[in-house]
Structures are given as C-alpha cells and as structure tokens.
Design a binder for these strands. Sequence first.
DNA 1: GAATTAAATCGATTGAAGTCGTATTAGATT
DNA 2: AATCTAATACGACTTCAATCGATTTAATTC
Lengths: 205, 205
Amino acid sequence: MQEQQSIQSTGAPTHNQNEHVQELLPLLKALADETRLKVIGLLATRAHTVEQLAETLGLRASTVSHHLARLAEVGLVSARPSSYYNVYRFEPQALARAATLLSEKAQQAPPPAEVRQPFAEDTVVKRYLGPDGRLRALPAQQKKRLIVLRHCLAAFEPGRRYTQNEVNDILREFSAEEYVTLRRYLIDYGLMDREPGGGEYWRVE
Amino acid sequence: MQEQQSIQSTGAPTHNQNEHVQELLPLLKALADETRLKVIGLLATRAHTVEQLAETLGLRASTVSHHLARLAEVGLVSARPSSYYNVYRFEPQALARAATLLSEKAQQAPPPAEVRQPFAEDTVVKRYLGPDGRLRALPAQQKKRLIVLRHCLAAFEPGRRYTQNEVNDILREFSAEEYVTLRRYLIDYGLMDREPGGGEYWRVE
DNA sequence: GAATTAAATCGATTGAAGTCGTATTAGATT
DNA sequence: AATCTAATACGACTTCAATCGATTTAATTC
C-alpha cells in the first residue's frame, strides 16, 4: 500500500504539464523556422502584403503564403482583406502567450543539486518496480539492489517481530517468484535479522 | 537626396532583430519537438539518466541520447557523470532566456491599425523604388501609380517655378529612361501644371 | 583482467516540412 | 462582361530530422 502510493506520486507526469505542452508545442513549431521568424520581424514593424514579404525575403509568393498560413493557424498573425490584397499583421498577444508559457516552465526550478542524492532512491525503485508495485527484476548491481531492498524493508514495521510466513506474505507482494531470494538478501545485507533455527524475523535498526 | 534618406530609414531591417533571431532560432528549434519538451518536463521534476528517460518515454536510449545532445547544445540541459551514469539536469536559465527574447519581440507592438493607411505610401514606394532611390518600374495600377508620382513630386519645392530642363534633370534622378513619361503623368494626374507653349512648370497645391 | 553496463556514435530508414512552379480562386478594375 | 491581379491551393521535389539497430567507448564490478 505505502509502496504503491509512493510510486504513483513519484512517477506519474502531472496533467498540467501535458496541457501546457499541447498549447506550447504548436506555437513553438510555428516559430522554429528562420523564414517565419523573419516574417514576424517584418510584420512587427508594419503590416505587409504577401508580395511585399516575398520580395523582401527573396521567396516565392506561394511559399510566403504557406508560412503565413502556418503562423495564422496559431494566431501569431492575422489577415485583413483590403482592395484585392491581403494585409497581414502581427499579433503580439499570441507571442506574449508563448513567452509566458516558457517562463512558467522555466520557473519550475529543480531542487538544488547539492541537496539531492546523485541517485535518488525512488528513481531506482521506479525502474525496477512496475506501476503495481511489483518487482520486475532484481538489480545486478549491489548499489541498486540495496536500494530496492530498502524499499521492500519499508513494508515492515520497526520493532515488530514477524513469523517466516508473515515475512513471506509481505515479500510475495513484491515478487511472487523471488520472495525467498528477497528474504535471504534482506538478511545478507543486514537489513533484517532473525532468531536462529527458523524463528521470528525483525527489522534491524 | 531627401528621397534616399526617407527610403533608407523606411526599408532597412534593423540589426538588433537579426541578432535576436540568431540567438532565438536555435533555442526554438531545440524546443519545438514533442519528445524534447517531454524530456524537459521530466528533467524539471528531477535529474534523470538516459535510460530512465528512455524507459519513461518508450524510446531507445540512443534516441534519447540524441535529443539530450541537441538540448545540451543550446544549454537547456547539462550532464554530470556520476559513477558510470550520465545524470542530466534541466537548466532553467536557458529557458528563461528564450522566454525573455520572445517577450521582447512581443512588445515590439505595431502601431494601431486604425491610424495607418491600409496601404502606407512608403510601402508602395519601397516596392517600386530601388535602394538607390531610382524607379524600377511604373506601377500599372492607378492607385499605386499615384503614390509613386506623389513621391517624385516631393522633389519639387512648392511655389517655385521650374524650366522644362530643370524638371527633366530632377525626374531623371528617378528614371533615366522614363523621365518624359513621368513628366507627362505629373501633368495628367494634376500634380503639376505648366504654362502653355512649353513654358515653366510648378507644383499644384 | 574479464565481464558487464550505460552512454555515445554511426549508418540507414522513414516521415515531415520548406520551396518551387503551375493552376485556380476571389476580388477589383476597365 | 471581360480582363487583370494578388492570393491561395495543389503536386512534385528535396532537404532535414527523428528513430532505430548495431557498434564502439568508457567506466565499473566481480
């Protein structure tokens, strides 16, 4: 139970971020083109027709029209027919919105690097435990193995004594196949101890 | 003289904008990818190794490594070797810089649409006059032609009277081939008048 | 020292996107 | 009504980039 909660809270990417991505990505894709950036720069100075832009940029009108359509899709420019021209103008609000979204993302400051472990335990735990909290495999590296074992150890209350069957039941929650191995490792790594002769088990403090 | 100045001040794109584009474009290109946005989102939560990201994103490690390299090129992420992992972390300053650049561009507010003509005269002038102030061609449309003619008219002082030779000299500055046509048009459009019998010319007020 | 592991590099494949040329549409001019 | 023009739509070409698989590198563990 506890493990599952901690896993879920650790792993799932938040919804807000995805929503921001969905709003931000089209804007960024529209902006991430040299020609379109130039177009925006020109339109920021004054409104232009397609042909004026095409001449200044040295491109075909059809190409410019294509870019303007892409920019208009995300609201970065707008068109207003006048005589038989289409006068395009820049829409600063859309760009300001993009800037705001980026700024918000930038302020999701990660915790200072000194405080955190180079390998946060929950990171390793997440890799070796499925979303149901069950163990996928036992890490080969001792460093990781120890982290996973400590995670399993958290299922036991400090000070309380368990029979071997109780221990097995709890460890089977992590791996129905390897719970015996887990039990042995917990002893080997000094995380648990037991009475000689198959007696009771307990957490080592 | 006067014309050249007005043309230069009207036409030349500013240097600052281009510099901003050069700084902004690589950042935007790095950001405008769904996978890389996800990577940034994950790294904003906590530092990750390549494999952790690959598993979470459902991609190959080589692919993630590629994306991380692109992000690192523009300083959006940084790597720190630890044991034999490479721990990548998010660099919020770089993203904040991008947001600042976008915000600046957004604040280059264009003048209000109501104040300006749908076709600013200098826009048409710029299309039909080369950077040296010389006429490339005569607009076919009357509306445009009138604008260009008014531009040429500005070379004459109000009230002063000119001989035909003086008029020719001035108009040759705009077009060595078509100055006669220009002179006739100026009369036809009622912008200038002249004494009957090839006498003096003057601006109509 | 041999084996293992994470990461980077390289080559190849595939899909997306910018550009052009042409044709078509919509609107305005005569 | 007929003509002309700016803009867009469409098809083709080409370039770029995301992804994968395999190999190589660097560092660690046994």
